[in-house]
């Protein structure tokens, strides 16, 4: 056959072989990935989507550092049992500012895409310090040191700058006040508290998340966990009853 004959010659030329491998291996990615950047419907438009506050971003980075994504997904699929167990299915818009996304691939613990507001701050703090104090049969690791580790806030402006370069709409004002906003969000009585609401919106939660006066990693992580699923209210508007997809 001519095809095998052609191959007979191809396998005598290493450079041609490499080029053929590159060509064959490029098609799939080009067809599936490139359009995701150009087709507008890929990510829904939402009116109210906001960016993470510096404190929530710091909490997210702790979530990444500790590898929480290895056991918790943040992606509710369009399946009836998932919607009934966890809440409205996840929209692409919800993670549009997530560098990287944390959709996860395994549920050793439950999905937490809609965790925000489900439990009190006190519950989260107690649960993170010792999961088995709150859920006796839990197999989650304990993170007691989060409550004593001071939160690093000095370089948060640099983090916001990096994210803005990647396309997240942080303003000059947000960047200039990043460290101060992180502290103020966990201290609602402080002078800077008004600025946080002004910059990130009325829906932003200002609380002493860890219940302790000092700003710790616990404040940041709990602030992040409490904002999961709360950056936009779009998923909670009536979702289309797409019976074909929603099985």
């Amino acid at each position: 056959m001519a095809l095998f004959k052609a191959h007979y010659n191809l396998e005598k030329n290493s450079i041609a072989l490499v080029i053929a491998i590159i060509l064959a291996a490029s098609v799939g990615g080009l067809v599936e990935i490139a359009p995701l950047f150009t087709i507008d419907e890929t990510v829904e438009t939402t009116e109210d989507m906001r960016v993470y506050t510096p404190l929530e971003l710091a909490g997210r980075n702790i979530y990444i550092r500790e590898g929480c994504y290895a056991c918790h997904s943040q992606m509710i699929r369009t399946l009836r049992d998932e919607v009934e167990r966890y809440g409205p299915y996840s929209l692409a818009a919800e993670s549009q500012y997530d560098h990287p996304m944390l959709w996860g691939s395994k549920r050793t613990g439950p999905d937490i895409a809609r965790l925000g507001g489900k439990y009190s701050d006190d519950w989260h703090v107690a649960h993170l310090i010792n999961p088995r104090a709150v859920v006796p049969s839990s197999i989650m690791p304990a993170y007691p040191w989060l409550a004593s580790a001071p939160l690093e806030v000095d370089d948060l402006s640099d983090h916001l700058v990096a994210l803005r370069r990647l396309g997240v709409p942080y303003t000059e004002d947000m960047i200039a006040n990043a460290s101060q906003d992180a502290a103020a969000q966990a201290n609602p009585d402080s002078a800077g508290a008004g600025g946080v609401v002004e910059r990130y919106g009325e829906a932003t939660t200002l609380r002493r998340f860890s219940g302790m006066p000092r700003l710790t990693e616990m404040d940041a992580l709990v602030a992040y966990l409490q904002v999961l699923g709360q950056l936009t209210q779009a998923p909670y508007a009536a979702q289309p009853a797409d019976t074909e997809v929603l099985q």
Partner: peptide, 26 residues
């Protein structure tokens, strides 16, 4: 990815959300 600074380990991946998910699993 874009490093936060050249003097630290932390960086932010270039892609986000659904595009990042697709690149990641590709």
């Amino acid at each position: 990815a874009l490093p936060v600074s050249w003097t630290g380990a932390k960086s932010y991946p270039a892609f986000s959300g659904v595009q990042d998910a697709m690149v990641q699993w590709w």
